[in-house]
Structures are given as C-alpha cells and as structure tokens.
Amino acid sequence: MTTIIIQENGIMMAKLAGELDTAAVVQVEKDLQPIMESDMDVILDCEQLTYISSSGLRLFLSVLKNQKAKDKNVSIINLNTDLRRIFDMTGFNKLFGLE
C-alpha cells in the first residue's frame, strides 16, 4: 500500500495505491498526516486503490471530519466499480458527494 501526496494550486492530493485493509490503515493514517495538518481542500485519488475495508472507510471519514472542521472540502475521485459499490452500501457516497 503506497500513499503519494502532491500539493498543487492550494490543493492537497493523495494518490492511494494498493489494498487498504485494517493492517494497512495504521501506515496510511501516518502518511496522511500532512493532509490532516494542512489548511487546504483535499482530493483523494483512488485510481490505484483495489480494496477498502471498514477501517479504511473510517480513515476517510476522519479526514473528512477533520477538514470540514476547518471549512475545507474533501473529494474522492477515480473510484473503481467495486469500491463504488462499497461506498453506496455504507452511505459514504452521500458523505463525499459522489451522487
């Protein structure tokens, strides 16, 4: 599981690749620290993400809550069909404005 963070035009973008299972969440959470500490809008690019567990979803939710508290947006882009289904099942599609 790899996480690359790019800062561009006042936006933080995280490119996530691999399987975000419970074991991986600990590392990814650390990798996303710069984003959590920033005062910018965030884009989570999931093009390379192949799997997400509920712990991964919880991590996304904590990023969203964190940025919302600073009045910043979090967008998720490039979800594959399987992951999109998980987002639909859990109502996360609505939380991240994916409808």
Binding site: S54, L57, R58, L61, K65, K68, M89, G91, K94, L95
Partner: peptide, 14 residues
C-alpha cells in the same frame, strides 16, 4: 448510514 458527516459515528459499519 443516512446520518450526516458530523453525526456519523466511526464504527458499526462492519
């Protein structure tokens, strides 16, 4: 799963 970001608990999804 219908709650908003602020109301949503972390957990119970599994």
């Amino acid at each position: 799963i219908t709650l908003s970001v602020e109301e949503r608990n972390i957990g119970g999804l599994g």
